[in-house]
Design a protein around this nucleic acid. Structure first.
Lengths: 161, 161
DNA sequence: TTAGATGCAAACCTTTTGCAACCTG
DNA sequence: CAGGTTGCAAAAGGTTTGCATCTAA
């Protein structure tokens, strides 16, 4: 009866494949492949986890001091990648969004309110239930977002001592 | 097998009772009962639905032209009311939050992406499932948020014609 | 009388945008 | 070379904060 499962967090495809897909997408839309776009994709591929645009910006600056990259380009590229279905984001209210390489199935998040750690899960029963609820209300479902907030095991230990 | 239900949206208690509770709360914390706080609570009581601080600000200005009320007070009071458990909020990412009089049970939201309409529902099975998932990850669950986005029946009709 | 509350404006933060300079195709 | 892209700085939204003034208790 156990339907919950950890979602695979390592990239499912090789960087070369991902890069090729990205280039094809750009070409098909008359857009250009730039060093900045490559570095952003590459950085997301190499570092698993969730990043705010600001965090990604600092990481890229640090790892690529030679390439000038503005924060605006980070934002523009993340939007581009999200529209393309290559990255996904979680919203944290006024505190902004976090992005991750999203070449994986839909999943929900469980977030530690102490350390900010984000874990992922997928539950078939909840997914189905949401579709059913949308249908009951006569809604045409487009998307959904489920976040569980709590304190992770590590932070519980820290608080205990 | 139908567990979904519409959540009651009209206030569960009389305004007098609510006001008394609010005054007691303020007194117990050494805080003061001001005209602005009264007007904010009263406006929320009289208008069911979800409001952004800005919307509430404009509504209050319009209905109470004689009382000068700054937007900062709206924000401060909504935070106060939320901490006190009198109102609840839904977050809309960078677009801010919407508040509603929250003297009612926990519920989730289904939101129309065309017209912004917000409906509420409660599903026992989903609630239980979330608790179970938190437990599986060793999390001490504090809160959760489930939002379903889609197009409401009315907006579907508009699009069709 | 006095601690707490208010309005105003400035400050904050995240995100977006206008634009001249700069690349990619 | 043309049109998309970039960095920069300014602007935009939503929210918070500092402070002198005001007011409930």
């Amino acid at each position: 009866m156990k339907q919950d499962k950890n979602v695979e967090t390592s990239p499912l495809i090789s960087y070369e494949t991902l890069l090729t897909q990205f280039k094809q997408l750009l070409r098909s839309e008359g857009q250009k492949f730039t060093k900045q776009r490559e570095v952003i994709l590459h950085t997301l591929y190499n570092h698993s986890g969730h990043f705010t645009p600001e965090e990604l910006y600092r990481l890229i600056k640090q790892e690529n001091p030679e390439l000038s990259t503005g924060i605006a380009t980070i934002y523009r590229t993340l939007s581009l990648l999200e529209r393309a279905g290559i990255v996904t984001s979680i919203s944290f209210g006024t505190q902004g969004k976090k992005y991750e390489l999203g070449v994986k199935a839909h999943h929900d998040h469980i977030i530690c309110t102490k350390c900010g750690k984000i874990l992922e899960f997928f539950d078939e029963a909840i997914e189905k239930k949401q579709e059913r609820i949308a249908k009951e209300f006569g809604f045409e479902m487009e998307d959904h977002s489920l976040k569980i907030f709590g304190i992770c095991p590590e932070c519980q230990k820290k608080t205990d001592k």
